[in-house]
Nucleic acid binder design. Structure first.
Lengths: 142, 142
DNA sequence: CGTTGCCTTGACGCCGACGTCAAGGCATAC
DNA sequence: GTATGCCTTGACGTCGGCGTCAAGGCAACG
């Protein structure tokens, strides 16, 4: 098949396929007229790349999987190097999730504190006159 | 103070400060010799930016906080627009953490499955002869 | 024969938040 | 005087993963 069909069946674009080829992830075989030509095995390579991409892997991280498939193994993760990438990624994900969770808590704290401060000011000013905590410049042009 | 001191006290670089100025986040007052000059209020602006940056906020997301401070409010989050950014960020963080957690589970599954497959192959081949699941091309050049 | 559609290479654009280098001005220390 | 160190503007580089446009070739359909 040609690049358009490969891309469509792999759920991506011809441009991306050429890019993967430029990185050495996909082969660049040509048929007589100069068009790139692919077979079902190439489609498996592409699908392996896309799956890992969807997981948030960088393209370089997909290389061990692709080379594993190219070496004739049944799955991209049949090789130790691929398993190592999985494990490293798990660690990175855990670290990232941990950081994000901590940030989330801090932001929630800030929000709660700011809302409390706002309400206190509102109550304080609400007893005498009108509150309306305007902030954006030029509330209503008088 | 001048830009170098401001940057140092704000925990960033002069280059970053100029960049923030180019976005209109920081003022660009000059003293007689053309040097940028800053006061303690500017330092507070910068620190507000840095704090939010550390939370993973984009620079545009810090703008409401900065404008709030510039409008004379005691805190950057004393304004409704800032609270809105907090809330939006909380939603984004929750969504992101959820996605990452799902991905983490999938990767863990893949790893477990691949290790199982490897062990089964090892047991299968281990009974007759030698296992050694080589993958990288050219294991030992014979 | 022309049109349409897929293909080719090459090259620049994009996003965000700066880093880094170049060439030069100002100010202080020695 | 000059060496040092901070400052100025301007402009290009970085990272990742492509998008998009330009200019042209090949193939099939009518």
């Amino acid at each position: 098949m040609r690049i358009g069909e490969l891309a469509a069946r792999g759920g991506t674009t011809a441009r991306a396929v050429r890019y993967y080829e430029s990185l050495g992830l996909l082969p660049g075989r040509r048929s007589g007229n100069g068009y790139r030509t692919y077979d079902e095995d190439d489609l498996r390579l592409l699908r392996q790349i896309r799956t890992l991409q969807d997981f948030g892997f960088g393209l370089e991280e997909t290389r061990p999987f692709v080379e594993c498939l190219r070496a004739g193994h049944p799955e991209g993760d049949s090789c130790p190097a691929s398993l190592a990438v999985y494990r490293r990624k798990l660690g990175e994900l855990d670290a990232l999730i941990g950081e994000l969770t901590a940030v989330r808590a801090q932001v929630a704290d800030q929000l709660a504190r700011a809302e409390r401060a706002r309400d206190e000011l509102a109550a304080e000013a609400g007893v005498p006159g009108g509150p309306e905590p305007e902030c954006e410049l030029g509330g209503r042009a008088t």
